[in-house]
Amino acid sequence: MTRRAVGTDSPFNPPARPRAGAAGLLLACAALVAAPLRAEGPDVRARLLLPSAVAPGASAAVAVELTLGPGWHVNSHSPSESYLVPTSATLSAPTGSFSPVRYPKGVARRFSFSDKPLDVYEGTVRFEAELSVPAGATGAIAVRGVVSYQACNDQQCYPPARITLDGDVKVSAPTSR
């Protein structure tokens, strides 16, 4: 079973809608005072896909999955213009090593604000690598994934951002001989 570590969602969330009526209004305003107003922004979510366990000396696939909400896109890892901020993922762990991250191809999309099509990611994409576990490893390996991106919709672009994801991979017990 694949263990998944849910990282930080987009810091942007749609604002709560106020209710009609005095009681509802008072509740809504009390909520506003207790928790600051939420803001809208890029619908970008990420999660770390990890195996539940890896044997010592073995390798296993890991991935950072990025999901863009409808209407949102990020530049691909190889954007069509040099001034565009590419989407990148890094994986790290205190034990073991990762293969280079593999990136999917982007899709060419033409937007109203650009004469040329842009190479972008939309929907859900995965950035994959292999984690190689040392032969003498035991316990669990803490894995960190960081995905960097810069999101736009068809009207505005939001600043470069990144999401940090953490999870653990259990090192399975070595087979006794």
């Binding site: 969602d9 987009s10 810091p11 942007f12 951002a161 940090t164």
Partner: peptide, 14 residues
């Protein structure tokens, strides 16, 4: 550019 916003750039955090 080059300093990528950590998600702690919370627009809805206290």
């Amino acid at each position: 550019r080059g300093y990528l916003a950590d998600p702690i750039m919370d627009l809805d955090g206290d």
